[in-house]
């Protein structure tokens, strides 16, 4: 409910365990990959997503209905978790869920940048973060990017956005603002995190997420050939790279790959690295990184059953479920066959 008060992991874990049981099983995924978009929506209506499908059914249809229903359900589930949590537990969960605040800020900025109307921006928001309804509504009513940046002054994105706004004014592109928002989120993940036995693994997970993000970005930069300083995109907090190293490694993709192979993630990512070297596909590497993170998060759930870790594990599993259903629906819409879709899914 708030960061005040004492932590209540027992209560939240009990509630989350029930929610975890409602996630789709492998068997259900196997059914879903053989359905068309309309059948998937019908299947979802008979499960956890009933309220969202019924609420949005009049406005959207087909895969859009599925995607918006998934996003709304995800927001509701995570909002519930933040409502249940108190004290330190709330802070630990909110750290990760602020990624949706970052998403919403970027969505509003992009909407304002491309002159979209309020409804179009609002439809794309995922209200799963910490921002309250009032702030989100004020952001939606902002008439300009400058006004939106001012409104975010008191949030964790405030300083970074104010600093990046000058760059935005100089260049006229959203890149500095978007990067500032994402950087603020990632750097806030580990900022002031008190580490004890129970949160040790959580910290390792967050570090891995930062390391993987740094590795992905460095590889993207190395491949794009764009004249960008990789250290500008470096996120502090990981253990795999330092800013100065990343600048050098981004010049040489082979060296970067061998560095990842030799790191502590080497074993977990060996399949991904092989794929990257063999197929020269960054996408497959990214998917392998996601699978490695999910596998790691799954182990989080069993080590300290009454800490934040099972909750984070559920959050990641829920995110993955949403991504998988969306992938199935969009894949079916695009005419991909069941095997191709199954190949793209990340399921534990």
């Amino acid at each position: 409910m708030s960061a005040a008060g004492s932590s209540n992991p027992e209560y939240v874990n009990a509630r989350v365990r029930a929610r975890r049981g409602a996630l789709y099983s492998d068997e259900e995924y196997r059914k879903l990959v053989r359905m068309g978009p309309a059948e998937i929506a019908r299947f979802m209506e008979e499960s956890e997503y009933e309220t969202e499908i019924n609420a949005l059914g009049a406005r959207y249809s087909g895969v859009d209905l599925i995607e918006y229903a998934l996003n709304r359900n995800l927001a509701k589930q995570f909002d519930d978790i933040l409502d249940w949590a108190d004290g330190r537990l709330y802070d630990l969960i909110a750290r990760y869920l602020r990624k949706f605040d970052a998403w919403n800020v970027k969505t509003v900025l992009r909407g304002l940048y491309s002159d979209l109307d309020r409804q179009a921006i609002e439809d794309d928001l995922i209200r799963a973060g910490e921002f309250d309804e009032r702030l989100v509504n004020r952001l939606l009513e902002a008439g300009s990017i400058e006004e939106a940046v001012d409104l975010l002054d008191r949030t964790m994105f405030g300083d970074a956005l104010a600093e990046a706004y000058e760059d935005y004014e100089d260049t006229g592109v959203l890149v500095p603002l978007e990067n500032a928002v994402d950087r603020a989120f990632y750097e806030n993940l580990l900022d002031g995190l008190v580490v004890d036995e129970a949160t040790q693994q959580y910290r390792e997970f967050l570090r891995a997420e930062i390391d993987f993000r740094n590795a992905r970005n460095a590889l993207r930069l190395a491949r794009s050939g764009a004249e960008i300083d990789p250290s500008e995109y470096y996120i502090e907090g990981g253990k795999l790279f330092r800013a100065a190293e990343l600048s050098t490694l981004a010049q040489n993709a082979d060296e970067l790959v061998s560095r990842i192979r030799e790191s502590s993630y080497g074993d977990d990512l060996s399949a991904a690295i092989d794929e990257l070297e063999r197929a020269d596909s960054l996408i497959r590497f990214e998917r392998a990184l996601e699978a490695a993170l999910l596998e790691y998060s799954d182990t989080l759930g069993y080590v300290f059953p009454l800490s934040v870790t099972p909750i984070i594990s559920y959050i990641l599993a829920k995110e993955r479920e949403v991504e998988n259903i969306r992938a199935i629906a969009r894949g079916r819409e695009a005419g991909l066959d069941a095997d191709e879709i199954e190949d793209e899914l990340v399921i534990l």
Binding site: V175, N179, Y186, R216, S224, E227, L282, I283
Partner: peptide, 19 residues
Amino acid sequence: KSLDQRGYGLLGTSARIDE
């Protein structure tokens, strides 16, 4: 366009969007 000219931030997007 190069990666920095496309307008979207690098940190919050993926190689799929680049591709």
